[in-house]
Design a protein around this nucleic acid. Structure first.
Length: 275
DNA sequence: TTGGGTGTTGAGTA
DNA sequence: ATACTCAACACCCA
């Protein structure tokens, strides 16, 4: 489900509910979600007594900053966080519950159970899994044209695969890659190494622009995404190609084609995006 | 009823 | 190095 704009929206809405709250209990109903420390019991024990001071984000990862540790959380396809009074019945698919000293609960809900949580001591979070190989955030100053261009030059893959590669740039997923490629006028099957520097610059600009607009609109809701206040995103109204198969292109009127690239559903305007 | 598809990503294989 | 398949899991839809 969530790509950078959805995770960022979750970060912003969730902060309002949990900053300054102290954890007094953690219950884990689906232990496979907990990746570090290895023992889920240690995860719970370690969190106990710690206060949430801030929530950050790196790519599609949420980073809960605690007293001693950082909780790194990836929502994968369907993960959601919400805050409820302790006595409110839990919804189906609630797999991790953080109870605060004030009686409120932070609940992690994930229909498909794909999400992950790593709890790591502060200062060690960038070293090992899961952030070790993560590339720069598209909004980070280090995501320069020179950096992006150098990555494109030395790979033998098609551009869609490169944009989805989180070690190149962190945060784009299937929706925003298709949108970025369309806006930049680049065909997803184009070899990355054969793009001109001008095309690379355009891709970089359109990626940053599209993600920024999507953040401003609270993300994209296709089926199930809601932020931590239960609100849907609005960016689905702004999509040019994703989910628009057979619809006329908003730029030229040619029907949008849905095909497959690297096993992922891929949406293209055959007129605006030439190979 | 069944198989294919879904906003993610890691592992294993050739 | 890359591409492909599968796996994790639940649900929706034709």
């Amino acid at each position: 489900m969530p790509e950078l704009p959805e995770v960022e929206t979750i970060r912003q809405t969730l902060k309002r509910f949990v900053l300054g709250k102290t954890i007094r209990d953690v219950k884990i109903y689906w232990p496979n979600i907990i990746k570090a420390p290895g023992e889920p019991e240690a995860f719970s024990r370690q969190l106990n007594g710690q206060t949430i001071h801030d929530i950050g984000r790196k790519g599609k990862y949420l980073m809960f900053e605690l007293d001693d540790d950082i909780l790194i959380s990836h929502l994968r396809m369907e993960g959601k966080y919400s805050v409820h009074p302790q006595d409110e019945p839990a919804k189906k698919h609630t797999h991790v519950v953080f109870t605060f000293t004030d009686g409120e609960e932070l609940r992690y809900n994930d229909v498909r159970k794909f999400g992950t949580m790593h709890l790591k001591p502060k200062g060690t979070e960038l070293a090992g899994e899961p952030l070790k190989k993560l590339g720069p955030d598209p909004f980070d100053p280090s995501f320069t044209l020179e950096y992006f261009w150098s990555k494109l030059k030395k790979t033998d893959r098609v551009i869609k695969a490169v944009l989805l590669d989180q070690t190149v740039v962190a945060g784009l997923g299937n929706i925003y890659v298709d949108e970025t490629l369309f806006k930049a006028g680049v065909h997803p099957l184009k070899q990355a190494s054969r793009l001109t520097k001008k095309e690379a610059a355009r891709l970089r600009e359109k990626a940053i622009e599209t993600l920024g607009e999507a953040v401003a609109m609270g993300g994209t809701t296709i089926r199930s995404y809601v932020n931590s206040q239960g609100e849907m995103g609005m960016f689905q109204q702004e999509l040019f190609v994703y989910g628009q198969g057979n619809e006329p292109c908003k730029t030229c009127g040619t029907p949008i084609i849905k095909t497959k690239v690297g096993g992922r559903g891929t949406h293209i305007c055959p007129t605006c995006q030439k190979k």
